[in-house]
């Protein structure tokens, strides 16, 4: 385990593209998620109205609302991590280094495991980062009376982790099948639309089945939270069934990734 992670690190630490992508991800995601109040101020100046509500009073960063608001917005930036995953995998095919890795004594399963481990690592770091932003922003903006709700709905943090991890595993499978960076990025971008098209095509009574597709499954973990500020009913917790489904997808996606190279000639 440790050795596979070290192998992956020594491939990446001197790779500038890796640092640029990861850097952009954390900077952009950090700035965006921390500037919610600025955004509301801008909306107010433009004269936007949330019914009777004073826009500047919307408790975006109050505990416990912050966990769902923050994780929902933060997950939109995972595409940058996805691009990194695509590059780290398609490079191995375009440089043919996967072949040399196997010649040198890595098994195909080791290769997949090393990619899964780096994806796991990135998902953990990203989750910790979001958690720290949550603690920081929540502590700044929450009134004293709401501080006791600090860890209420903290379940959105593990849900964010699961959504990120499964998304990157899905991207990994696509990159392993396609093997070329540009095309993989395009497919990753249109993939949600493909699942949506399946939803449209399926007859009404069967539409619920699409919720079991991998992208639907990971997107369903965190519902859009903002409706609650215009008095719409939203689901403000993580459903156990969604967590179970996504946990089930972890081995499925890893297995699918392994199958793409298990019996292939690496030339």
């Amino acid at each position: 385990m440790n050795r596979l992670l070290k192998i992956e690190f020594s491939k990446l630490l001197s790779y500038r593209t890796f640092w640029i992508l990861i850097g952009i991800y954390f900077v952009v995601m950090g700035i965006t998620t921390m500037s919610g109040m600025e955004f509301l101020k801008w909306l107010a100046e433009k004269g936007a109205q949330f019914g009777e509500v004073n826009i500047m009073k919307v408790p975006l960063y109050h505990f416990p609302d912050i966990w769902q608001n923050l994780t929902y917005v933060a997950q939109y930036f995972r595409l940058l991590l996805g691009i990194f995953v695509i590059i780290s995998i398609t490079n191995e095919f375009s440089y043919k280094t996967i072949r040399q890795n196997v010649i040198d004594g890595l098994s195909r399963a080791d290769f997949i495991a090393s990619k899964v481990l780096i994806i796991l690592g990135i998902s953990i770091v990203s989750t910790v980062f979001v958690f720290l932003i949550g603690i920081l922003m929540g502590s700044i903006y929450s009134p004293e009376s709401e501080m006791r709700f600090m860890f209420k709905h903290i379940d959105f943090i593990p849900a964010f982790f699961l959504a990120t991890f499964n998304y990157l595993l899905l991207v990994m499978v696509i990159a392993l099948i396609v093997k070329r960076a540009g095309l993989s990025i395009v497919i990753v971008l249109v993939y949600p639309a493909i699942e949506f098209m399946i939803e449209v095509i399926l007859p009404g009574p069967l539409e619920f089945l699409t919720n079991y597709l991998p992208y639907h499954a990971l997107s369903n973990l965190i519902d859009v939270p903002f409706g609650r500020y215009i008095f719409l009913e939203i689901r403000d917790s993580v459903a156990f069934s969604d967590i179970a489904l996504n946990l089930l997808y972890i081995p499925i996606l890893i297995w699918a990734g392994y199958q793409t190279i298990a019996k292939k000639n690496l030339s």
């Binding site: 192998i7 491939k11 280094t97 040198d104």
Partner: peptide, 21 residues
């Protein structure tokens, strides 16, 4: 020959050393 083009000779051999233990 197959190596990571963005790594130096030493760094490339470090990857090999890790793989070969």
């Amino acid at each position: 020959p197959i190596f990571y083009p963005y790594l130096s000779a030493v760094k490339n051999l470090e990857v090999v050393a890790l793989i070969k233990e």
